[in-house]
Structure formats: C-alpha cells, structure tokens
Amino acid sequence: MNLVIIKYNAGNIQSVRYALERIGATATVTDDHEMIASADKVIFPGVGEASTAMHYLRERKLDQLIIGLQQPVLGICLGMQLMCRHSEENDTTCLNIFDEAVKQFKPQQGTGLKVPQIGWNTISDVKTPLFNMVPENSYCYFVHGYYAAKGEHTIATTDYIQPYSSALHRDNFYGVQFHPEKSAVVGEKILTNFLKL
C-alpha cells in the first residue's frame, strides 16, 4: 500500500510514522503534491497552532490539494481541527471539510479541570468502520486546548467540560482529536482499521 503522511510545519509527525511501523505499515512523509494525490491513504497529523499551520498549507497550496483528495484521509489532532470550518485559535479559517466550528475549552473554576486537556479519556457512541472492534468507552490519549462541537459529522464523543466530537467523518475524510499513535493497543487498532478502509 502507498501510504503518505503530509509533511508540514507541525510536530509529532515522526511519532505517527513509527506507530505505523509498529503495526507493519511503511509511510512516506512528504509535501509533494503528486505523491500525496496518488497515495492509497493519506494521514494528516499534527500538533501545533492553527493559524501558523494554515498559513503554511496555503503558501504551498496544500489546502486545495487536501480538500480535493478522493482516497481515505485521516486527520489527527490539529490535523482534524484544520479539517473543520473555522478555529477560534487565532480566528483561523480552516479547510471546511467538516462543517464544524473549533472552540476553545473554557476552564471551569472549582472543577479541577485544566486546559489544555492532557491525558486519557474515553470515546463513546463510536460509529463507522474506523472503530471496528473498538469497545465503547475505550481510553484514548488526548492533548488539546480546542475542541470541535458535536454535529452531524460526529462519529465519537468524549466528555471534557462538555461533550464534544472526538472523531468526525464525511465521505472519504476522517478526523480524530485524540492521538491514535499514542493510545496504546486501542490506537493501534484504530490505525489498523484506517489502513483497511
């Protein structure tokens, strides 16, 4: 299989590559339009800041390329947020693959809930083959200060301060807010499912 990870100015790309290697898949990390367009599967990972990342994607016309992809695409963390319509993080217009707004978690006084959310939380109401054989309320690893609200594209829900979309899906596009590459065996199962789509 020809598997590509989109290279851009966001962190965490190596971890995704190594996670794929652990499940026996080899991925090419590239920003080459031709290679991305012709891949069987595309992963759009990332940890970073939304406006800087979008600026970088636009400069290299990767934004238009990503929107037009026909093969299965998996956005991870910032990657998923960039696939939404808009992010409150520096008021950034994003790719609008998922017609959802990305908002900032508001810290709740007295609850002990910190922002960003860092750590293991459950995913529930899981839908689509991305979550085949993934039990309800499995634990995944999250690190994020912004979240996508629940909407028509929601395929997994997590509760932190309020319920929000921990995964989104539309057509060939999938996005997960958590880090499957760091979510132990549950994450490996989800990555394996993606490769089978």
């Binding site: 996670a19 132990a184 065996v185």
Partner: peptide, 8 residues
C-alpha cells in the same frame, strides 16, 4: 523508544 513504545 519511539519505535518501541505506544504511549506518550
């Protein structure tokens, strides 16, 4: 470490 470990 990164090649062998599936947690952060």
């Amino acid at each position: 470490i990164s090649q062998n470990i599936n947690i952060p």
